[in-house]
C-alpha cells in the first residue's frame, strides 16, 4: 500500500516455490535470550527474516550480536554485516559485554563483515545502486552465507542498505530474494531497521515490514523523566507469539534481559 493506492505484484513461479519451501516445517532458532524465546513460543522459526526495529540506541545491534554469539556457542556459524558502524568500533563496544567471546570471532564461528568494503570491491556506487548493483550485492551476500554454511545472519542496518536502492520495487525485490535465498539455506536472518524515536512505524520506507517474516520492536517509555526500554513482538510467522510489551534491560554482565512491563500509571 502506498500513498497513491494499492499496487499488486505477481509472484514469479520461482518466488512462490521458495516461499512455500520456507513455510513448511518449523524448526526453531533460539535467540538465547530466555524470556524472548518464551515470548516466541520457543524461538524464531528457522529461515525467518526478522525486522528488528528501533531508534538510535534502542539495543538493536546488541540484541542482534547476542543472537549470533548464542548461536555460535551452539555450533551455528553466523555473519554480521555492518554498514552503520565501522568494524573496529563495533567489536570494541561488544567487548564490554560478558556474552561476547573473542574466540568465536577468531575461530570463524562469528564473522563480522563491513558491507561498505564489499561494496567498494564490487565497484558499486556508494550513493545509489542500480538494479545490476543490487543483484551483484545480493549474489555476494548469498555466496558468503553459502560458503561459510551460515545459519544465522544479521544486516545492520537494512535501512542503510535500502537507502541506496532507488525504488520501492527494488527494495521489495531485494529483501524478498535475500530472505528467500537465506531461508532455503536454513539461515535465520535479522535485519535491523532504523526508525525515528516515538513514531509508530516499522521502517523508513514502509516496505520492509511487509516482506519480513517477523517484526520485533524495541522502544522506550518515559517514566517521570527516566527511560524504560521496551521490546514487543509485532509479528512472527509460524509461531503463536506473545503480544505483550516487556521491559528490557541491557547490562554488560547479562546482555539483554526481559521482564514484564508494569502498565499502571506513569
Amino acid at each position: 500500500m502506498v500513498e497513491d493506492g494499492v499496487y499488486a505484484y505477481s509472484k514469479t513461479h520461482e518466488e512462490g516455490k521458495m516461499e512455500e519451501e520456507h513455510m513448511m516445517g518449523h524448526e526453531i532458532c533460539k535467540t538465547g535470550i530466555d524470556e524472548l524465546d518464551r515470548k516466541l513460543d520457543g524461538g524464531i522459526p528457522v529461515g525467518n527474516a526478522v525486522l528488528m526495529v528501533g531508534s538510535s540506541g534502542s539495543g538493536k545491534t546488541t540484541l542482534s550480536m547476542q543472537f549470533l554469539v548464542d548461536g555460535a556457542k551452539q555450533g551455528e556459524r553466523g555473519v554480521f554485516f555492518t554498514i552503520t558502524e565501522p568494524l573496529f568500533k563495533l567489536t570494541k563496544n561488544m567487548e564490554n559485554f560478558d556474552f561476547y567471546d573473542k574466540k568465536l570471532i577468531e575461530s570463524g564461528m562469528v564473522n563480522i563483515i563491513d558491507l561498505r568494503i564489499i561494496s567498494d570491491r564490487l565497484g558499486l556506487d556508494t550513493e545509489k545502486y542500480t538494479v545490476e548493483d543490487a543483484s551483484a550485492l545480493l549474489d555476494v551476500l548469498k555466496d558468503i552465507a553459502d560458503e561459510l554454511n551460515v545459519k544465522r545472519l544479521v544486516i545492520d542496518s537494512i535501512t542503510a542498505l535500502c537507502y541506496r536502492l532507488q525504488s520501492n520495487e527494488m527494495i521489495r525485490n531485494f529483501i524478498f530474494k535475500l530472505g528467500a535465498s537465506l531461508a532455503s539455506m536454513g539461515c535465520t536472518t535479522i535485519l535491523t531497521s532504523e526508525v525515528p524515536p516515538n513514531e509508530i512505524k516499522y521502517s523508513q520506507y514502509g516496505i520492509e515490514e511487509f516482506i519480513a517474516d517477523g517484526i520485533i520492536c524495541l522502544g522506550d517509555i518515559d517514566r517521570r523523566g527516566d527511560i524504560v526500554r521496551t521490546l514487543q513482538i509485532i509479528k512472527m510467522r509460524g509461531v503463536a507469539h506473545s503480544r505483550t510489551k516487556s521491559a528490557m534491560s541491557i547490562s554488560s554482565k547479562n546482555g539483554i534481559e526481559l521482564i514484564p512491563l508494569l502498565k499502571s500509571g506513569g
Binding site: 527516566d226 521491559a247 534491560s249
Partner: peptide, 16 residues
C-alpha cells in the same frame, strides 16, 4: 539500581 523509578530493573536484579 539507577533510580527508584526503575521498578522492573529492581525486580530483575532481585530475581537474578
Amino acid at each position: 539500581v539507577e533510580s527508584p523509578v526503575q521498578l522492573e530493573k529492581m525486580l530483575l536484579e532481585i530475581m537474578n
